[in-house]
């Protein structure tokens, strides 16, 4: 028993010190006023009640939710479309698959730096393309109306990770289902709607849940590319949390924001789970 514990101790100690400990500490700190330079003072639910009256909290929570509703369908749609296109028996198909997968392994910071220049209003690749066909330039990251769609566009570029999962799932769809549908007179759209998508639905559920979590924690790209601008249009919830903790030194308030973020994410995830009974098809059932 002791030897077993000793051998698992590196993980146990790591988990307690670097995961469980900080989680418990942040739960306690969320009940304190902790400006970093002084010891935390217990204020009960003070941070949470203040948060309810903080119009910025509501603004960024709504912004993040809106972003989630825009980002997830687009990202999933593109990943499925790519997977279907790459699920063909063509010469050199593995090369195409690799090419589409590559962007997903580019680190987030490198992606952000690259797209900052692609989106550049003056010298960017996208505007050069638009101008070449006679369309006017767009302020991708400088116009508050375009900043969020720009982030979605950039994220779609990295859809290769999800694409690989959909591709694996597609290859597991039994051929006889398509044959049966074909014999029943189903066309391409009907086969996709009644065979492909139901068979992919468990993977779509996985993508939606990871998408909900990912969009609520959206930080790196916005921190590097826009720092919340223009006109606060990309100040995502996690950025606001970061600013409170490390710019304004309101660590207690930032911990409360983190716990509320956890609860929001949990509720959204539970809603998705509950709804999954109506749209997810498990082959074994």
């Amino acid at each position: 028993m002791l030897v077993g514990l000793a051998f698992t101790s590196p993980w146990l100690i790591g988990f307690v010190v670097f995961a469980l400990g900080p989680v418990i500490a942040s739960a306690y700190l969320s009940l304190t006023d902790y400006p970093l330079m002084r010891a935390p003072v217990f204020v009960g639910l003070g941070n949470y009640t203040e948060l309810l009256g903080d119009e910025k909290f509501w603004r960024y929570a709504v912004l993040n939710t809106l972003f989630m509703f825009l980002e997830i369908p687009v990202a999933i749609g593109v990943a499925i479309a790519l997977a279907m296109l790459l699920n063909q028996r063509l010469r050199g198909i593995t090369l195409y698959r690799t090419l589409f997968f590559l962007p997903s392994i580019v680190p987030a910071v490198a992606t952000a730096m690259l797209w900052r220049w692609i989106f550049n209003s003056e010298y960017g690749l996208l505007n050069a393309g638009l101008n070449s066909i006679g369309l006017p330039s767009i302020g991708w990251l400088t116009d508050p109306r375009w900043s969020k769609p720009s982030f979605i566009l950039m994220d779609v570029w990295g859809a290769g990770g999800a694409m690989v999962i959909y591709l694996a799932s597609l290859q597991g769809v039994p051929e006889h289902l398509y044959e049966a549908a074909h014999l029943d007179g189903a066309g391409w759209w009907s086969r996709t709607r009644f065979v492909t998508l139901p068979m992919l639905s468990p993977v779509i559920l996985f993508s939606v849940i990871t998408g909900v979590i990912g969009t609520f924690q959206y930080f790196t790209q916005a921190f590097i590319m826009t720092r919340g601008g223009p006109e606060l249009s990309t100040l995502f919830y996690a950025l606001y949390l970061f600013d409170n903790a490390f710019q304004y030194f309101k660590m207690g308030y930032a911990c409360a924001l983190a716990w509320v973020l956890f609860v929001i994410t949990l509720i959204c995830t539970l809603i998705v789970f509950r709804s999954s009974a109506k749209w997810v098809y498990y082959e074994g059932n």
Partner: peptide, 11 residues
């Protein structure tokens, strides 16, 4: 205007 200036500044 702010749109034009920020777009120009991005370059």
């Amino acid at each position: 205007g702010a749109d034009r200036v920020t777009a120009f500044e991005s370059g």
